[in-house]
């Protein structure tokens, strides 16, 4: 077997590809085990699979190489990522050993398993004569694989596909929550209930934007002058704005910052909520300095 393989010389390009991607694949495999973030692990595995795909192509197995990339990298790892992303970004593996001696046992068992597989392959393939690529890829790589798959190995493939379909169906049934037909809410029903009386279909009113305040805590006002409770997020704590916070910002004042000026106790409350021209405070600079609107007390009026 080895003698026959040695006859076909390895081209320069093939050697280059191997010595570039081989170490990369090994590094990525180590990275996959070492990486603490699950998504990084998955990405390293993707890299390993891409390298494997290229190796297959280089070794005159273009179909298996491309199938490796499409099926494993493109579909299966994508599903892995799909699940990992749902777990969350910051989920990292903890390195605390729960079972004592687990790591040592894992390493020993891993080496043992590798040895077992290697021995089995060696013994099984010892006496198999190598056919060579010329014989295997007749008339082409794709035809050769198809001929084997649909004649000699058809039973194995059919059994495997039946197993996979059974597993997929079983997983689906286990995870499926069956709802009775009358309990199921269809899209038209959902739409109708949205517009049914008692439910307001439109978006909630935004918070009020006034000359004095554009805070999300400032409630919007209804046509009759009351505050709209719904326009202020319920999550905000109810508090009064300080005078400094309520003062107009960005207006230049000869006495310094507007906030400082407006912070005085001389501020009139007359201008509250658009008291009109009559409500203008009597400050010398002529600044319109309103009082603090109450926050988060919509619906109570003032």
């Amino acid at each position: 077997m080895t003698a026959q393989l040695a006859v076909e010389a390895i081209s320069t390009g093939e050697a280059w590809v191997f010595w570039t991607l081989g170490p990369l694949a090994v590094l990525a495999a180590i990275g996959m085990v070492v990486a603490r973030n699950a998504v990084h692990s998955a990405l390293f595995l993707v890299l390993v699979m891409l390298c494997l795909g290229v190796f297959y192509v280089v070794q005159s197995g273009p179909f298996i190489g491309l199938a490796q990339i499409i099926v494993y990298t493109g579909a299966i790892m994508m599903l892995f990522l799909f699940v990992l992303m749902l777990v969350g970004r910051d989920a990292s593996d903890s390195l605390i050993e729960v079972l004592r001696g687990q790591r040592v046992a894992a390493i020993l068992l891993g080496i043992g398993f590798a040895g077992l597989v290697a021995t089995a392959f060696y013994r099984a393939l010892q006496d198999v004569p190598a056919q060579g690529l010329q014989t295997a890829n007749v008339p082409s790589n794709v035809h050769g694989i198809a001929a084997l798959m649909f004649t000699r190995y058809i039973f194995a493939f059919e059994v495997t596909s039946a197993l996979l379909i059974t597993a997929a169906t079983g997983a689906m049934i286990l995870a499926h929550i069956e709802r009775r037909r009358d309990q199921r809410q269809t899209q038209p029903e959902r739409m109708r209930s949205r517009f049914a009386p008692g439910n307001y279909p439109g978006p909630k009113a935004g918070p009020g934007v006034y000359a004095t305040s554009d805070s999300v805590a400032t409630p919007a006002r209804l046509p009759d002058g009351r505050h709209s409770e719904r326009s202020v997020p319920q999550i905000l704590p109810k508090r009064e704005l300080t005078e400094a916070e309520a003062a107009p910002k960005g207006t230049a004042s000869p006495f310094g910052r507007g906030a400082e000026y407006g912070g005085g106790s001389t501020v009139s409350r007359r201008s509250e909520y658009g008291g009109g021209a009559a409500g203008r405070p009597d400050d010398s600079a002529g600044n319109h300095v309103p009082a603090a609107p109450s926050v988060g007390q919509g619906g109570e009026g003032r």
């Binding site: 998504v39 990405l43 993707v46 891409l50 795909g53 273009p62 179909f63 491309l66 199938a67 990339i69 499409i70 990298t73 493109g74 579909a75 994508m78 990522l81 992303m85 970004r89 082409s140 790589n141 794709v142």
Partner: peptide, 25 residues
């Protein structure tokens, strides 16, 4: 051109989506 050129197109479009998925994540 390779004997499986159409699969190359498929593979490229499959792996290219990693950019979108990883960018989102």
């Amino acid at each position: 051109d390779v004997p499986v050129a159409v699969l190359v197109i498929l593979a490229c479009s499959a792996v290219g989506v990693y950019g979108i998925v990883l960018g989102g994540w």
